[in-house]
Design a protein around this nucleic acid. Structure first.
Lengths: 196, 196
DNA sequence: CTTGTAGCAGAACGGGTGTTCTGTTATTTA
DNA sequence: TAAATAACAGAACACCCGTTCTGCTACAAG
């Protein structure tokens, strides 16, 4: 009997996620979200309950839509340096495609803007970083079987830090070139360290 | 004849800078600034003209108050890896002193929050990064006289990126320990690369 | 075609925003 | 002591925020 829905909850979450991604949480108003998603205030509240809840759902969706496709190769047990390089290249190409200076990484942005003042966001960010760290550690250990666990962990953690730094940089550069150079330098340092 | 001032413009700028540093621009209201600085709205407007102008002045002050004291040693022509290590250690100790998870770096925060949507902030951030890059390049070239200019520049730029990543991390960690481990890993990678 | 129902757009709301303005206060010179 | 001056505290302002609510719309069942 009822009127059929003109949008799905997934539509809402994904469109809102893109807005939060490029403009951050505070600088995105409900009016912005209504315009960006094409969904009325009522729809947003009945589907998700409010701005903050929508942000958190968008954060989770970012994992499926952006992180997993880019990171899956690293998480396989055949991965190595070339998969790490491909991961950075893929994300840089995505940033260039979206336009530079660009939105960077939703998680990296959340780490700076939200995490220190919002425990829920901090927990999601930490989980994300832990996932990246495990993936990088997997790839490094495949590449350097003789390296100790402590050294691998330290390098993997540092790769997570470098990724965050890279997305920060992507918010001020005009072209992908400096980002590619950063990634290249990082890979060089890694190779240098692994081959000792 | 007039009533004497109870505060200086510098007082205002420095106290406001600390608030922007820890809470960001959007999440700091004029009420917050009045409470944090102890200076009335009228004083803020007559001294600086408004919130944004105050932020930009605070940004400039950050260079003198925080960056220069920490970075001066690296900019001397006798600097090397030990000065780079000391710079990171000093900033990490400062972060620990201010409380973790902490404010990170005002410039790093601005890069994420403001730079993509504010050309004036972007320009100041770029100038800061350029200063860091030159300093790091100076220290690296002192340490590795045989290294080519292009390699030195790439490493110096990457050190800037790592610094930004480190301050991002400082916004989610509970203790300085992981930050020190990151700095140590970075220095190890650098040494490894320089000694080839 | 009528009726019931859920979705819809947008008005309304209290509170907070950055900014401006208005009196008052404290101090120094005359 | 009295007048002049500029800084002070805080009220006032118009606007925007996230949230809630109201009345209308469009479709499916009877």
């Amino acid at each position: 009997m009822p009127r059929p829905r003109t949008h799905s909850k997934d539509d809402l979450i994904h469109r809102a996620m893109e807005r939060f991604w490029s403009h951050g949480y505070s600088a995105t108003s409900m009016d912005d979200l209504v315009k960006a998603t094409g969904i009325s205030r009522h729809g947003i509240y009945s589907d998700c309950g409010g701005k903050r809840a929508l942000y958190l759902e968008g954060f989770a969706a970012y994992q499926h839509v952006v992180v997993s496709p880019a990171f899956a190769a690293i998480e396989q047990n055949t991965s190595g340096l070339s998969e790490i390089a491909a991961y950075f290249e893929r994300q840089i190409a995505l940033a260039a495609e979206m336009g530079l200076p660009g939105p960077g990484c939703l998680v990296a942005n959340a780490m700076t803007e939200m995490a220190p003042h919002d425990p829920d966001v901090a927990a999601q960010v930490s989980a994300h970083n832990q996932r990246l760290k495990s993936g990088f550690a997997n790839a490094i250990s495949n590449e350097a079987p003789g390296m100790g666990r402590a050294d691998i962990d330290a390098l993997a953690d540092f790769l997570v830090l470098s990724a965050q730094g890279l997305w920060s940089m992507s918010r001020i550069v005009e072209t992908p070139k400096p980002l590619r150079r950063h990634a290249e330098t990082l890979l060089d340092l890694l190779k240098c360290r692994i081959t000792k």
